[in-house]
């Protein structure tokens, strides 16, 4: 089983099987809805994990990029009649440019400054979405047209589920490839030792910028899809707390673990639903989970389990 998992794409096959079989167990639209939102979050978290877990750089403002995608998909089609796909691309480009613009100077800095700068960026974006009411509808948000691709309208849980399942599998595959490539090794190396990476010829700032931009694009695209899927967007997508939620998913599932991203997204997307009855305790639970994991299970669920299995085998 583990050997199978460890063969490069064994895990991918298992996830594909699960995704294919899951609908057999779904009893209602709510189940589909949960699965779709887990898949969306999983893709975002994959991108974020490349940045945090693999490259060792933090972003506390990733929801801002989500917001860029969401609002691009909300505003451009309804105000200017753009086709959704083009709007989505525009959002992603915008997120990429913004990420590149701030990343260059920021990634010369370390840890805290990076946390602060990304956080600041997220806060500014959230404020902008709230204040530019004529475009964004202000704090009340705005409606988003349904997603249509080349004249074919995507509606209903089943179609969305299929789309997200495919996207998720693709992202898992691409991330796995990336990690095991010269590019991915350079990222992991600069996490392990910046000086060692540098003397080996890695232009560390360029790599940090690249992975930051890539994860921003992941987030923006998923922001667009979320907006279309939900049919509505409010400034809350870009909220600081949402950024923290995403980081929590990375941490819980497992830093530097592709499949951990999936597990983290699944658990923490389902959790608020479970906690919804306990108004307010949600925040406490999130905070407690973050602290407990960082202190007692700093590697996260999947890597810890994997290590345990490995030991058991010996």
């Amino acid at each position: 089983m583990i050997a199978f998992f460890r063969r490069r794409h064994g895990g991918l096959v298992i996830v594909a099987l699960i995704l294919a079989l899951l609908p057999l167990f779904f009893q209602n639209a709510y189940h589909y809805d949960l699965a779709i939102r887990i898949a969306i979050n999983a893709v975002i978290v994959l991108g974020l994990n490349l940045l945090i877990g693999f490259a060792g750089q933090i972003s506390l403002g990733h929801a801002g990029f989500l917001g860029i995608g969401a609002y691009a998909s909300a505003i451009l089609p309804s105000h200017y009649g753009w086709p959704p796909l083009l709007a989505m691309m525009a959002g992603a480009t915008c997120a990429a440019l913004l990420a590149a613009l701030v990343a260059r100077p920021i990634f010369r800095l370390k840890g805290h400054y990076l946390a602060m700068a990304t956080l600041g960026l997220g806060v500014i974006l959230a404020i902008a979405f709230k204040n530019e009411a004529s475009l964004t509808g202000g704090p009340d948000g705005m409606a988003v047209v349904p997603l249509s691709l080349f004249g074919y309208e995507l509606s209903g849980e089943k179609k969305w589920y299929a789309l997200m399942a495919v996207l998720l599998l693709f992202s898992l595959w691409a991330s796995t490839n990336l990690i095991d490539s010269p590019f991915g090794r350079a990222l992991r190396a600069l996490h392990g030792s910046e000086v060692a990476a540098q003397v080996a010829g890695v232009h560390i700032v360029r790599y940090k910028v690249a992975i930051f931009v890539l994860s921003a694009v992941f987030a923006s695209l998923m922001g667009s899809l979320t907006a279309h899927y939900v049919g509505f967007v409010t400034p809350n997508v870009a909220d600081f707390l949402h950024s923290i939620e995403l980081v929590t998913m990375v941490v819980v599932g497992g830093m530097a673990s592709v499949y951990g991203s999936l597990v983290g997204a699944a658990l923490l997307t389902a959790l608020p639903q479970a906690l919804a009855r306990f108004e307010g305790w949600e925040t406490v639970a999130f905070g407690a989970i973050l602290m407990l994991f960082m202190i007692f299970l700093p590697r996260g669920i999947v890597p810890t389990l994997a290590a345990r299995f490995e030991k058991g085998k010996e």
Binding site: W173, A174, S175, N177, L178, S181, P182, F183, G184, A186, A210, L214
Partner: peptide, 11 residues
């Protein structure tokens, strides 16, 4: 090595 990101992701 060839350090291209896109080629890497697409294997």
């Amino acid at each position: 090595l060839d350090r291209n990101l896109i080629k890497a992701a697409l294997r």
